[in-house]
Amino acid sequence: MEIDKILNPFKDSVIHVFNTMLNLEPLAEDAINVLEREITSDITGTIGVIGDITGTASVRFPRALACRIASLMMGTEIHEINNVVKDAIGEIANMVTGGAKGILIQLHEISYKLAIPTVILGSDHTLSYPTGITVKAIPFIIDDQKFYLEICLKNGE
């Protein structure tokens, strides 16, 4: 399975989640190879999948955008990363990965199980992956803020 074949359903799922839950319209840019261009973020929601494809899918945000997303989801102003923001970003990762699963089943009969989401915090943190595996990311723009969908997936065993 080519990772590029999996990317589009994830991209469409990100756009659908942001449109439906947040009334935001993120603009997707061209996918990048993460091993050639390291990505940093302040908060990452990551979720493991296992099945026809196996690996992780992550949504990665700068601090300000994560707070804006949590504010929209909770209906209250949030200015600092706290447990509510962490929970919101975990839920975004969950919805994006679940939504992509629905599209992948329809398009390619690819299915997987989702793990419980994990949230990683730290200013400008990076993610590390095993060597020899392809990791791709799609940058998205909302107003002047950028966030990333990052996927590291291979054929299931």
Partner: peptide, 9 residues
């Protein structure tokens, strides 16, 4: 729901 956010929504 285990997500506080989703319960709130």
């Amino acid at each position: 729901d285990d997500s506080l956010t989703m319960r709130r929504i």
